[in-house]
Design a protein around this nucleic acid. Structure first.
Lengths: 351, 351
DNA sequence: CTGAAAGCGCTAACAA
DNA sequence: TTGTTAGCGCTTTCAG
């Protein structure tokens, strides 16, 4: 009657214990490599487990240990989507680390404006052991909710609040580097396409832009600050809206705050008959795979996207295991494909 | 002592039962909307549950019900990766449907050549309630393993075996459509870049190519059949290896069996100074987002990638709930961006 | 070093 | 219509 409709080829711990002539407790200890069990006993149990193809029952184990072994992963909300290439590469890193440690991923579908409820749902009765989030905002309501809940969480992207763990690429330094590289090619009229408003990353990248200008001895010109939203369409629109300026030679280079916008910008320039990089240089930020699909490949500030994913997961796991407290981790960035979509400022650039 | 270190704002069913003055059993029934409980009782319990912010404990419930509420998702193995854009969009659809039904996703990291062990691991003690797989092969060892295990499973992509559930885009019809569209533009020398060998989809798409040729009254020319592997690099190499042929005007159009290869092909053509679509037309298959990032956007056969994900999940859930038996679902495809990377055959095309 | 026993929080016969 | 009673399979005191 017992153990009848179970998956074939698999026995329970109780059965294994009987076979070995030990109690469940000892078997449990042996399997978790508890030093208290005698080596010979452990060896015997392990051997029997192998022989009888014993497999631990994860769910039962989780119940007994008050954990779920699953991590909630929140994706960015509109206008960005899960299909954003950046997040795919990032997910790759996250999932790999997580699965190495036996965790599953719960990816809730976040309905517009229901972010807090989604988090509450996740947090209730610890449906997840921890949560990974992206895109911290300057004022982020999620943070207080999460802190109250006592569920460990980590952001991809630095937060304003100090007592929150995050992992991020060097936004400010990276954009600054990019602007300086453009300056080194003789550019003096460098426009920037900003990211979505209200995000910390947008702010940081804008600061990086200003740092870059300062390093070049240039002053901030509001006409060169174009709004954007981190989408390809946003980059496209930014260029279209400033086509006159571009055609007048008032702008010789564009620093886009992410690759998707750089790609959109290049499309708009192509369509307007403006040659990249001969007439206008374009530099992106992120270093996503698809930048390489363009001809020529996109010149961009490469973030270690995959590593960001791995690190975020690693930090969260550390938090869950209580191996450490709050962590802030900034990963370095580098310019790649240096001579593709950027080039020397054209003579008329001084227009 | 009891119920002390639980997530605040959440009580157990036992506590709720005490509050209501009923037994756990009745509460459990009320919460699962069992018709056997008196309406007033049910109302009271529901009200109290709301008031005390009761949240069911998923793990415990799963243990008692002998299920896990998690689905194993197998990703394609090398040379494709989880970072393949096609799979991200697909994952979006899968995860959304699954989460709506309260399922989590377990994405095991599959070590090379360890596919069968990974499946065994998943299946053991029903670590998952069902499994989603991709890229069925002509001879697929996973299928027999899965069938023996009794765990419900679905493939993204049609299988050779009849008694296996799958969801797929119309591969054969789609490629055929693509070839005919090229033919309608006057192309007679249409090369095809094939997918990875051994896959059912590669086979089907090749058949679609042949159908297309037949419809155009052309016969299969082995010189126009180029091997590939579904990666961008594969598409690039295919073109590089046949550059002489292309430059000689012996090929005026290329049908790539997926978008990534089309993108690689275009890069190779660009680098060789061959104009797309003026000198050579290129058509892809899949309709991934990144195709739109090219200038001009890639002409391609659009699969409903997101819907494929949703349908795969829906079918699997149906199988798990035993609502239906084996299902074969083919979703329609359409050509998009019809006048971008394809154009009329150039006069010298008859070379 | 090992075992007995008491749960983890919920579900599901079986009775009443 | 409701309650009682056993578990689900594993972990973990607490004793010995």
């Amino acid at each position: 009657m017992k153990g009848q409709n179970r998956t074939k080829g698999s026995i329970t711990m109780a059965e294994l214990a009987k076979i070995c002539g030990y109690s469940k407790a000892t078997v449990s200890r042996a399997l978790s490599d508890d030093p208290r069990v005698k080596p010979e006993t452990k060896a015997l149990i392990l051997e029997m487990a192998r022989r009888y193809n014993y497999r631990p029952h994860t769910v039962a184990s989780n119940l007994a240990r008050r954990r779920t072994k699953t991590i909630g992963l929140m994706f960015p909300s509109a206008p960005r989507t899960i299909a954003d290439p950046f997040f795919l590469e990032y997910l790759h890193g996250v999932s790999e680390t997580l699965f190495e440690q036996g965790f599953s991923l719960l990816i809730p579908q976040v309905r517009q404006q229901r972010v807090t409820e989604t988090i509450e749902e996740l947090v209730a009765h610890r449906r997840v052991d921890g949560i990974i989030l992206t895109e911290p905002r300057l004022e982020d309501e999620r943070i207080v909710l999460l802190q109250e809940s006592n569920v460990p969480f980590v952001f991809l992207g630095s937060t304003v609040k100090e007592d929150v763990s995050w992992v991020d690429g060097d936004n400010r330094g990276g954009i600054c580097q990019g602007v300086r590289a453009l300056g080194a090619l003789g550019h003096r009229r460098i426009a920037v396409i900003l990211g979505e408003e209200g995000l910390v990353s947008t702010e940081k990248r804008f600061l990086g832009y200003q740092d870059g200008l300062a390093a070049l001895g240039l002053k901030l010109d509001r006409d060169l600050v174009w709004p954007g939203d981190f989408t390809r369409q946003g980059g496209y629109r930014a260029v279209v809206n400033h086509l006159d300026q571009i055609k007048a030679g008032d702008v010789t280079a564009i620093m886009a705050c992410n690759d998707l916008m750089a790609i959109g910008a290049i499309q708009a320039l192509n369509e307007a008959g403006v040659k990249v990089p001969e007439q206008v240089s374009v530099m992106g930020f992120d270093g996503i795979e698809v930048g390489k699909y363009l001809s020529p490949p996109l010149t961009t500030v490469q973030q270690p996207v995959y590593s960001l994913g791995r690190e975020v997961a690693r930090v969260l796991l550390g938090l869950i295991a209580e191996e450490h407290g709050t962590v802030h981790l900034t990963l370095p960035v580098t310019i790649v494909n240096e001579t593709n979509t950027i080039g020397p400022a054209s003579p008329r650039g001084a227009a």
